[in-house]
C-alpha cells in the first residue's frame, strides 16, 4: 500500500510554464516573459532603451502558472 506513495510518478503534478528573465547588465531592470525557441542563458538580445547597455537573458526556469 505504501509503495506508490514512496516514489511513483505523481500523475497530478502540474505542468510547468517556462519563463525567460531578461535583464539589462547595467540597470538590472528585469523583464519576465514566456520562453521562446532559441533562448539561452547569458544570450545577448539587444540594447536597453534606458541606458543603451546590453540586455541579457539572466535566467530560464519553470514555474507553475499563477491562478488568476
Amino acid at each position: 500500500m505504501s509503495l506508490p506513495i514512496m516514489g511513483a510518478p505523481d500523475k497530478k503534478a502540474k505542468k510547468l510554464t517556462v519563463y525567460t528573465i531578461e535583464e539589462c547588465v547595467k540597470c538590472k531592470k528585469p523583464d519576465k516573459r514566456e520562453f521562446k525557441d532559441g533562448d539561452l542563458v547569458h544570450k545577448i538580445l539587444g540594447k536597453c532603451k534606458d541606458c543603451n547597455e546590453n540586455i541579457m537573458i539572466s535566467l530560464i526556469y519553470g514555474e507553475e502558472p499563477k491562478k488568476n
Binding site: 509503495l3 506508490p4 514512496m6 516514489g7 511513483a8 510518478p9 517556462v18 520562453f35 525557441d37 539561452l40 542563458v41 530560464i60 526556469y61
Partner: peptide, 22 residues
Amino acid sequence: PFLMLQADALNKAMATFKKNQP
C-alpha cells in the same frame, strides 16, 4: 516505485533537452 520515478523524469527530460532549456 523509485525506478518508475526515474524513468518518468528521464522521459520528461527529453522535451527539455530537445528545446535546449537548462
